[in-house]
Structure formats: structure tokens, C-alpha cells
Nucleic acid binder design. Sequence first.
DNA 1: CTTGTTGCAAAGGATTTGCACGGCT
DNA 2: AGCCGTGCAAATCCTTTGCAACAAG
Lengths: 160, 160
Amino acid sequence: MRDPLLRLAGYISENGLKNTPQRRRIAEVFFRSGKHLSTEELYDMVRGPEYGIGQATVYRTLKLLCRAGLAKEHHFGDHTARYEPLDEAAHHDHLICTGCGKNVEIVDEDIERHQELLAARNGFLLTSHRMVLYGLCAGCTAKKQADPDALSSSADYTLR
Amino acid sequence: MRDPLLRLAGYISENGLKNTPQRRRIAEVFFRSGKHLSTEELYDMVRGPEYGIGQATVYRTLKLLCRAGLAKEHHFGDHTARYEPLDEAAHHDHLICTGCGKNVEIVDEDIERHQELLAARNGFLLTSHRMVLYGLCAGCTAKKQADPDALSSSADYTLR
DNA sequence: CTTGTTGCAAAGGATTTGCACGGCT
DNA sequence: AGCCGTGCAAATCCTTTGCAACAAG
């Protein structure tokens, strides 16, 4: 069962919850469209002339998706939570350009292995992790050479 | 010049700022005491019968320390920012027990190297990163075997 | 003296929650 | 019918800011 919408429906019925049009609509938009959406961005995408969906419902549904294991919450360094669809088994980390905000998903088997090792070495049972690399992408590096002060305006990554 | 208080004084004078008793007091407590303090925790430690320090000053001073390169802000998953003293050259990552909140600092040269590599492979110039591993420490693993529901109450790591 | 700093309280932004109503099961 | 979910607005939580008084350089 690959389709996240079906998986959601499964989670809902299994837990005595209810499959409402709002949840369907939010999940549909969320899974179809880009990654790393903030609640507000999703809220804007989800609401339309024919849909009257409240902010609170978007918040609540996103948290539901997390509980269901279908989404993951991130805090990258801008000042809101961002959510990404979770493809299960498709784990990845993030490489973010502090100049333009570009967000690249990356994986490295070696690193993952080392993480397990490190945890074990400390007596820990690793359950999850997050790794975010911050830097300047090729474009922004070039731009910065041309004019060293050109970048500061765009994203403002406080590096949380 | 190893002493962070001296380094702070240096940063202050070099930048035309002012060395106030509040800043001294906050920095002193911050550097002396434990790691990963929240603003509120530090606020409580800093204020005393003889000191009348406002929350805002604690916030402002912590941000100053970050700007000075003497502290680093983290968001681990409880719902506030946490700050840790930065020993310069003593970079490390974190291994957190989601059961009891224990926070172990770790480093691994291999991982650091791989991160550089990964960034470079994507055309990025790596400027910083953060990596947090979440898991169960030995103690909590044992505790959980005894009573699987025993842990949920303590920390509530939403895994941000 | 000049300018940065402080404390307080008010403002802000993101997220949560109480409540009455409406809609799944 | 019963109970979960929704929208709205009010409430919270954390953090920032405006401002007048103060103090460091």
C-alpha cells in the first residue's frame, strides 16, 4: 500500500477516527505538492473558494499525519515548523543554502552507519536522528564573490 | 585567551558596546553552569535578591553571546531555544535520550569528513551543521523492558 | 556628554485550546 | 444516537520591541 492517502485512511479507521473532507483535502494537497511546507503555506494552498478550512484544522491535521507516521516535522532555522511527507524507508538529511534557502535532500550510507555506531558506543538504542548541513550553494558562492554583502537579505537562517 | 569572560569583554570593547554588570553576571553564570540552558532556566539562575535582571536582558545577552561566537543556539525538541557555551574549536553533536532527556555530546571525525564531502559533492561550501541523534539510553531501555509505558511522561521530545 | 543598555510592559508570531455546532460511523 | 472533528476566536507560550530612565565610555 504505497499511496499515503490510503495509508492515512487506514490509520484513521484503525484508530476510531473520522475521515472528513478537510483531512482528505489537506492530505491530498500536502502529499501532492512540494516538500518542507510550513503550516501557513499549506493553509494558503488548501483553502479555496469552495473550501472553508480553518488554520487550526491544518495544524491539527499535520500533527495527525506525524502521529500516523506519514509526515515529519522540521525546524530548519526560519521561524516556523515545516513538514515533509514521509515515504517510509526513504530517509534523508538536508543540505541548506543560507544564501538562497535552497534545500537539497541527501543521504549517505556511511554516515548513517557511523551514527548507529556512535549511539551504540554510548549505550544508546538509536531511534531517529536529524542532520542538517548549512552552507552556500555554488550560485551563492559566486554571487558572494561579486558582491560580499549581496546575500544577507534573503532567508535569514539563524542556524537553529 | 581561553577565558570566555575575557573574550566577551574583548568583543564588547572592539565593537563599541558596553560592559554592564548584567552582562557580566549573565555570562558568568552561563559559562560556569551546565550546558543547554533555556532562557528561562538561565533567567532563574541569574536573578537573585541582589540582582534585578529582566528577562529581556537575558534574551538580549544570549543573542549577544551568539553574535560574539561564544554561544550557540539549539532547538532540540522541547519547546524552547537552548544555548550552550561555545568553546571554539570544540565542535560536537548531540545524542539525546527521548526517555529521560539525557544529552550526551559526541564527535566523530569520520562523520565530519563525510559531511564536507557530501556538501562539496553538491557544490556547497559547508559553513556549519547540526546533527542530533535521538534514542534510548541504556537505563531507559532497561526501564522500558520492565514496563513499556513507563517513559512517556518525562521529556516529550516531539523530535523537531 | 553621547550612545548603548536596561526593565518593564506591551506587541508579536506561531501554535493551542474551549466551545458550540455539524457530520462521520 | 454518540462522539469525533471543525471553525472561530480567545488564550498561551516564547520571543521581540518601544520607551523613558540610566549608566558606561
